[in-house]
């Protein structure tokens, strides 16, 4: 027990640095992903064919080519064209685009899940498309999409470990450093590492769960877990 304590105190500044990198990638990635997801999701249900087809192509492209490949494009290929982004930005943009594409499927699915009569009644009230989406459809879809986005958020936090591949010193990196220190050893290093990741993921997920509860209370409905699980699997495939 004292070993554990000693190790954690010795390495706490480094672990903290690692956690900060992981958090920055998670937070930044989540913001980019949300913007991408909402934009592409709305395009997917827009009345314009060009936007629908365009968003489909973009989404399938980012879903179909692996996150690591996309990240390596940003990290290794872009500099060849004179676009030299710092590693952190590569990570944030890469994660944001990839998870944004996954997220757009959840957004699209939720928008489509809003009952058809709701659309019909907006037509009956002569609302414009943007007004219908803003005032009627989106508020209802929001509660439906949160559980799916929550699952993706946890995946994004885990995805930040790709940072290792582009030379960032994130949590995974420092755990490996700790492991190589004979004073600490394998079990303590990884025990601490898994716990910290678990706590970060749990924290993000609990935060979103609060939003979810609030949205559900307002709508008086809870999306089924079965549907969410299935939709998540479909989005990331």
């Amino acid at each position: 027990m004292s070993d554990l304590f000693q190790a954690v105190t010795d390495y706490s500044p480094y672990l903290w640095e690692g956690v900060q990198v992981t958090l920055a990638l998670s937070g930044g990635g989540a913001v980019v992903a949300l913007v991408v997801a909402v934009t592409l999701g709305l395009c997917a249900i827009s009345p314009f064919v060009v936007l629908r087809v365009g968003s489909r192509v973009v989404v399938e492209f980012f879903r179909g080519t692996s996150l690591v490949v996309q990240l390596f494009f940003l990290f290794y290929v872009f500099p060849l064209f004179g676009i030299d982004l710092p590693g952190m930005w590569c990570g944030i943009i890469g994660l944001g685009l990839n998870y944004g594409a996954y997220g757009s499927e959840v957004v699209r699915g939720s928008l489509n899940a809003v009952a058809k009569v709701q659309w019909e009644s907006t037509t009956a009230l002569s609302m414009s498309w943007s007004m219908a989406v803003r005032r009627v459809i989106w508020p209802q879809a929001w509660g439906l999409m949160l559980p799916g986005l929550n699952n993706l958020m946890v995946m994004l936090v885990k995805g930040t470990a790709v940072a290792l591949l582009i030379g960032l010193h994130d949590l995974t990196y420092w755990v490996e450093v700790m492991r190589k220190d004979p004073e600490v050893g394998l079990w303590i290093a990884y025990g601490v590492g898994f716990l910290l990741y678990y706590l970060v993921a749990l924290g993000c997920s609990s935060g979103l769960r609060l939003l979810e509860r609030r949205a559900q209370r307002r709508l008086g409905l809870a999306p089924s877990k079965t549907r969410t699980t299935r939709a998540t699997a479909e989005a990331v495939a």
């Binding site: 470990a161 492991r179 990884y190 898994f194």
Partner: peptide
């Protein structure tokens, strides 16, 4: 299962190799 699901694959891969080495 929750812990495994919520922690990153790269970390788990490195962990497996480290166990193997140990």
């Amino acid at each position: 299962l929750d812990v495994i699901r919520m922690t990153p694959l790269p970390l788990q891969l490195l962990f497996a190799v480290a166990i193997f080495i140990s």
